[in-house]
Design a protein around this nucleic acid. Structure first.
Lengths: 194, 194, 194, 194
DNA sequence: CTCTAATCGAGACGGTACGTCGCGTCTTACG
DNA sequence: CGTAAGACGCGACGTACCGTCTCGATTAGAG
C-alpha cells in the first residue's frame, strides 16, 4: 500500500529495537482501549498495563497521553488531508472522492477506531486544527464572492469527517461508491458550485 | 470527557433566593472561565472560587462540572435545534436560515462563548448527540434513495454548527444576511436537492 | 505524671477534633512501625495505611516523614535535655541522675522505641544537634582549661543517650539505681572532676 | 538507612588494573561528594558521573551504595578499633591515647570526611555495631561489679568517636596532646577506675 | 419579628492519577 | 567482544483534584 499513498519516509529508523517495540505496544494499547471507552477515561496506568510496560516507561516515550494519540493520528490525518484538499482542484471530483474513500477503506480498522472510538472528539478537533493551518497557507485561486475560504475549508473537512465517521460506524451497509457519491454531492459540489 | 447527557430532572423553580443566587453565580463563573481556558482545565475549585461560593456548595447544586455546563447549554441547544431541524421542511429555506441566524445573533455573547470558548468541543459533541436522537425519532417523509436520513441530520447539524462558530469567531465582518445565505447554499440546499 | 515533669502546656489545643485524631493515629502508626523496621524502610504509604488514613492525608499534617518523627520526638528530647543539662550544675549529681532515669522509666515504652527502634540513629543525631545548640547558648561559668565546653556537652549527651539506650534494650536486668550510678560515674563525674 | 553491615567477602586483591582504577575512582568520588552533602542524598548516578564511569559499571564493583562506603570505611574502622580497644588493657593509657590520636592525625583528611562529612551518622552506627560484636567476643577479665562490659564498650567507642569528630571538625585549634588527654580523662579513666 | 430550618463557607478526609526520580537488571551497539 | 550507555520494570515521592463529610455561622421566610 505504501507505494500508492504518500506515507512517512522510512528515514531515521535508526532506533533501539526495544524502543520501537515499546512504542508499538503503547500505540496498540491505546487503539485497543479506545474501542472500549473514551480517551479521557483512559489513564496512563491503563495504557502501560495493557502494553505490558512499566508506568514510568510511558514517560520515556511520550510526555503525555495526547502525544501518544498524536503519534498515532497526526500522520494519518496529514495523509488524509493531503488526499482530500486537492479534490477541490480536480476536474473529476467524483473520482477523487472514490480515491479518498478507498484510502480510508484500506485502513478501515484504524480509521474506525479513530473516528468512532473514544477519541472521536479529539480527532475531529485535530482535523479542524490542521485544516485551519492549511487554509491559511493555501492559495486563493477563485475565491467566490459568497464563500470565504476559511468557511469552505472548515466546512469541507468537518462534513467529510462526519460522513466518513457515519460510514465506518455502519459497517458495510453502504458501498464505497455510494459514500463517495454522498461526499461529492453533499460536500464537494456545494463548495465548488454553491 | 465530561458528557452533558443526563439532564437534570425538571427543577422546581420555586426555590430559596439564596439558591438562585448561587446557581447564577456558578453559571456566570463558568462562562467567564470558558473565555480563558478549556473546559477540562477548569476545576470545580476554580468555579467555586470565581463564584464566591464554598467548594462543597458546588455539589449542593450540581453533581459535577458537566451538569453545570448542561444547565447552561442544554436548553439553548434544544432551542436552536428546534429552530434548525424544521428548516428542511420549510418552503422558504432562506427565510428560515435568516431566522436561525437572528436567534443566534440575539444571544451572540452566550453562543460565542459556547461555540468558540473552551467548551466548543463538548458543545459540538452534544449537538451531534442530540441530533442523532432526533434523527432516530424523526419521521422519514421523503427519504432520498441516495441520502440516508442519519447522514442528512448529522451532516446538517455539524455543518450548521461549524458555520455559526466561524461567524461568531469573526465578529461582524460578515452580515447576518451573508451567513444565512452560506448556510442555505452550503448545508440546506445540498441536503434537500442533492 | 504531668505534674512532676515539665510537659508541653495544653495551650492552643483549639483544633479540629478530626485533625487531632488523625495526627495521633499517624504518630501511633510510626511508633508501631519503628518497632518492626528501620525508619528509612518505612514509607509514607505504610504510615498512612497503618493509621487508617488516606495517603494524601499524611501531607496535610506533615511535609515529610521526618517531620512526623520530629513531632513525636522533639518535645521529648527537649524535655529530657532540659532535665539532663542542669545535672552538671547540681550539687548532688547522683540524685539528679536518678531523677533523669526516673523520667525515662516513666515513659519507658516511648523511649524504648525511640532509642532502640528503627529511628535510633536519627534520634541520636537529633540529640547531638540540639545539644550543640544548647552548648553554643549556654554560659561558660567554669570552663576547665583542659575541657572545652563543646566537647563536654556533646560527650555528655552522647554518653547519656548510649547508656539509656543500653538500659532500655536490656529490660529490667538492671535497676534504676544502678543505671543512675553508672551515668553519674561514667559521664557526669568525669566532666565535672576530670 | 543504608547500613554497612554485610562485609564484602574477602576480595581477592589480585585484580585487573582497570578494576583497581575504577574502584579507586568510585571511592574518591564518594569521598568528594560526602564533603558536599549527606550520604543519603548521594545517588549512584552521581557517584558514577563524578568517577567518570558508566552507571551500570558501578554495579559491577559494588552491589549498592552502602558497600562502597563499607569498602572505604570498614578497614579503617577495624584498624582504629584494633588500636582503641586494647587501650583498656594497657598500663600507660595516656601513651595509648596519644598513639590513637596520632593514627587518626596521620589520616586526618580521610577521617575528617568520614566522621564529619555526610556519612557521619552511618559511620557512628557502624562503629557501635562493630564494637558490640567485639564486646560480645571479648573476654571479661575484670568485670566490675558496677559496670557491665557491654556498656563499657559501647560508651567507650561512642565517646571516643564523638571526641575525635569534634577534633577533626575544629581543625588544629587543639593539639594532639590535648585531645589525647581529654580522651584519657573523659573516656578511658572513668571506665577503668570508675 | 421572631425562630427554626435551609443554606452557606470552610476545609478535613479517603481516594486516585499525575509526572518525577532513583534503584538495580538487562540489552544494545559501539569502539 | 567487552564495556559504556541507557532502556526497562518497579515503586515511592509529593501534588492536585475529586466527591463526601462534618462543623458552626448566617439568613430566609413561615408562623
Amino acid at each position: 500500500m505504501n507505494h500508492i499513498y504518500p506515507r512517512k519516509p522510512p528515514v531515521k529508523e535508526r532506533k533501539d529495537a526495544r524502543v520501537q517495540k515499546t512504542r508499538a505496544a503503547l500505540r496498540d494499547a491505546l487503539l485497543a482501549l479506545l474501542e472500549e471507552r473514551p480517551f479521557d477515561a483512559i489513564t496512563i496506568r491503563d495504557l502501560a498495563a495493557r502494553a505490558g510496560a512499566g508506568y514510568a516507561t510511558f514517560f520515556r516515550h511520550y510526555p503525555d497521553k495526547g502525544s501518544l494519540l498524536a503519534d498515532l493520528a497526526a500522520d494519518e490525518i496529514s495523509a488524509l488531508l493531503a488526499l482530500a484538499l486537492p479534490i477541490l482542484d480536480e476536474a473529476d471530483t467524483h473520482a477523487a472522492c472514490v480515491a479518498l474513500c478507498s484510502y480510508v477503506d484500506a485502513r478501515r480498522h484504524l480509521w474506525s477506531v479513530l473516528l468512532t472510538g473514544g477519541a472521536a472528539g479529539n480527532l475531529r478537533e485535530e482535523f479542524i486544527r490542521q485544516a485551519h493551518q492549511i487554509a491559511a497557507a493555501r492559495p486563493t485561486p477563485d475565491e467566490s464572492a459568497w464563500l470565504p475560504k476559511e468557511v469552505a475549508v472548515v466546512f469541507g473537512v468537518s462534513g467529510t469527517v462526519e460522513i466518513l465517521a457515519w460510514w465506518l460506524q455502519h459497517g458495510r451497509d453502504h458501498s464505497l461508491e455510494q459514500v463517495a457519491q454522498i461526499l461529492d454531492r453533499l460536500v464537494i459540489a456545494p463548495i465548488l458550485r454553491g
